[in-house]
C-alpha cells in the first residue's frame, strides 16, 4: 500500500489548485469559502452544545440552529455516553371485547427485520427518558396505537427498566435476566373510547389510516 492514500500523485503532477479569474468567480470563491467555514462551525455546534456546555457553545448553537436543523445535522453523537446503561421496554396487557387478555412487550426479538426492532426500541427508550406533559402525551400515543393494532377495547401500559447485570453477578451464577434486575412502573390503563376521543380533539393534518 502506498504510504499516502489520498496524495498518490507526486507534487509535480498534482492537479492544479482552483484559482478564480475575473470579478464574479472571485466573489463566488469568497462566498464558497465563507460557506465552508459556516458549515464546519455548524457541524461542530450540535455536539458541543450538549450539556454540560458553555454560554459560547450554546450561543453558537442558537445562531446556527436554523441551518443545522433544516439539514438534520443537529446531532450530538454521544453514542453510549457517558455510560452504557440498561434499557427501557414497554409491557402491555390488552383486553378484548369478549374479556380475553393478551400480554405483549416491545421491543421484542420477534419484530423483524432488525431495523424495525430498533425503531420500536427507540420508542420505548424515548418514553423512558421523557417526563412531564410530554410523557403523558407519549403514553397515550402508545396506548392508542397498540389498541388500534390489536383492535382491543382496553389497555394497561407498563414501563420496564432492565438494569444491566454486573460481571460479578454472572460469575456468581446469575444471569442477565434475573428478576431483581427489572423495575416495572405502571403507566396507566386506557379504554379505546377515551383514546380515540382524545385523538379527535387534536388538530390533525396527516394520517396513514
Amino acid at each position: 500500500m502506498n504510504s499516502n492514500m489520498t496524495n498518490t500523485i507526486s507534487d509535480s503532477n498534482k492537479p492544479e489548485v482552483y484559482r478564480p479569474q475575473g470579478l464574479w468567480p472571485k466573489v463566488g470563491f469568497v462566498v464558497l469559502n465563507l460557506w465552508i467555514v459556516l458549515h464546519i462551525l455548524a457541524i461542530i455546534a450540535a455536539p458541543v452544545s450538549v450539556s454540560p456546555s458553555s454560554s459560547v457553545e450554546r450561543g453558537l448553537w442558537r445562531t446556527l440552529a436554523p441551518y443545522v436543523q433544516v439539514l438534520y445535522q443537529n446531532n450530538g453523537f454521544h453514542f453510549f455516553a457517558p455510560n452504557p446503561e440498561g434499557s427501557n421496554s414497554i409491557r402491555y396487557v390488552l383486553e378484548y371485547e369478549d374479556g380475553t387478555l393478551e400480554r405483549g412487550k416491545f421491543p421484542n426479538k420477534q419484530i423483524k427485520p432488525r431495523l424495525l426492532y430498533h425503531r420500536y426500541f427507540m420508542l420505548s427508550e424515548n418514553l423512558g427518558q421523557m417526563n412531564g406533559e410530554l410523557r403523558e402525551i407519549m403514553i397515550r400515543d402508545f396506548a392508542r396505537q397498540l389498541c388500534r393494532d390489536a383492535g382491543a377495547e382496553r389497555i394497561t401500559l407498563l414501563l420496564e427498566w432492565h438494569e444491566l447485570a454486573l460481571r460479578e453477578r454472572i460469575m456468581a451464577g446469575g444471569s442477565l435476566y434475573d428478576e431483581d434486575l427489572y423495575e416495572v412502573t405502571p403507566l396507566g390503563t386506557f379504554t379505546w373510547d377515551e383514546l380515540s376521543k382524545s385523538s379527535k380533539e387534536n388538530v390533525a393534518t396527516t394520517s396513514a389510516r
Binding site: 400515543d141 396505537q145 385523538s199 387534536n202 390533525a204 394520517s207 396513514a208
Partner: peptide
C-alpha cells in the same frame, strides 16, 4: 399516523 406512535 397523525395519532400513532409519533403523534402530531
Amino acid at each position: 399516523n397523525v395519532d400513532g406512535f409519533n403523534s402530531m
